[in-house]
Design a protein around this nucleic acid. Structure first.
Lengths: 189, 189
DNA sequence: AAAGGTCTAGACCGCGTAGTCTACAAAAAT
DNA sequence: ATTTTTGTAGACTACGCGGTCTAGACCTTT
């Protein structure tokens, strides 16, 4: 063997399934390489560090999730944005567990690798921009209180409604959409 | 020195503040004993293991939190139960961070110490009983769907609304109560 | 054919952590 | 006064983990 037996995607894939099954803490270099039957050297040939692997995994997943959310907001459909969380979770169960059951900080403690820092910051900014825009559209103003309401309605409540089911490894049932919708209308009107 | 310089409460107190400040993962035997300037031997003289310490810390805090919740349910006041989370958090900021920002499993991975297992099970049972009772009172029946609604309205949504502020170390503002109340009425009617 | 680059292979190191062990000091019991 | 109990004191061990290092196999280039 002298040619690539393992590429970045292999390691990311193994990390993804491990993180989906048992959380990011279970993603150790050994667990990843063992799952692929790859040597440690091959991993460190592709990734600078564990943080690089988990950071990339998180960012990749976060961007995939965010896409639909941003689209809904840009279409001016707040309810669709709120319902995007359960919808996305249904069709990306493993990714949803990974992304929604844990925080960014469970993937990378402390500082992020320089190569990812910008991507993560951009992601956060885009998300905040969505909330601000919705706050303006739905509540007329974009002050702190309106922003806070937007965050609850579009992100916090949907996330909370979905978590129980993700923990069990099950897709969120239709009831979850009902809860989110009712909450949405109660606060947005 | 031959008489007790450190007792259980000292270790629990140090663990509590550490967990409140930096999360349960930061509660290492060294960090606890260093904070008290106590030797390791003294710790292990009082506690069988790290799990015993963190388990007791979690259970103690969970029971303190639960008290008001159960009282509200037994008084038949669902809204008060839902608002108990921000109310309790305001007056127990450190404990709230510890209890509400992390899961039970962040304190004790795997199996719980035998001495605590019963207490934890009882706690969970009492909580479930509250949700069931509320489901019956508020929705007429106590089927799975009603239970799920109860969990969202009494626990998941309030917790979600409070988390952002706890992360910042700030008490939940009145707006949080408004969000929880509106959500409550939207689903309970 | 030779040389150089690419990637596998896994032993090895250093560090932080939970937990153990032995020594001993002071108070309490006799 | 002597013994026993209670607890302090901290060196030490075991282990899992992230990360390094050197050897060498195979492909590509010249």
């Amino acid at each position: 063997m002298g040619r690539a037996l393992f590429d970045n995607a292999d390691f990311l894939g193994a990390a993804r399934s491990l993180a989906g099954e048992r959380g990011p803490a279970a993603v150790t270099i050994d667990s990843v390489t063992q799952r692929l039957k790859a040597p440690k050297g091959s991993f460190y040939y592709r990734f600078a560090s564990r943080d690089a692997l988990l950071g990339e995994l998180w960012l990749e997943t976060a961007l995939a999730y965010q896409q639909g959310f941003v689209a809904a907001i840009e279409a001016g459909d707040g309810l669709a944005a709120a319902l995007h969380t359960p919808a996305w979770a249904r069709f990306n169960l493993e990714d949803a567990r990974l992304l929604l059951l844990y925080s960014r900080h469970d993937f990378v403690h402390g500082d992020w690798p320089a190569a990812l820092k910008r991507g993560v910051d951009d992601q956060a900014r885009r998300f905040e921009a969505c909330l601000k825009r919705f706050a303006r559209d739905a509540f007329g103003r974009a002050g702190p209180a309106q922003y806070r309401r937007a965050a609850f309605v579009l992100a916090e409540a949907p996330l909370a409604a979905v978590k129980t089911h993700l923990r069990r490894g099950e897709p969120p049932p239709p009831l979850v959409d009902e809860l989110i919708t009712k909450t949405y209308h109660a606060i947005v009107g």
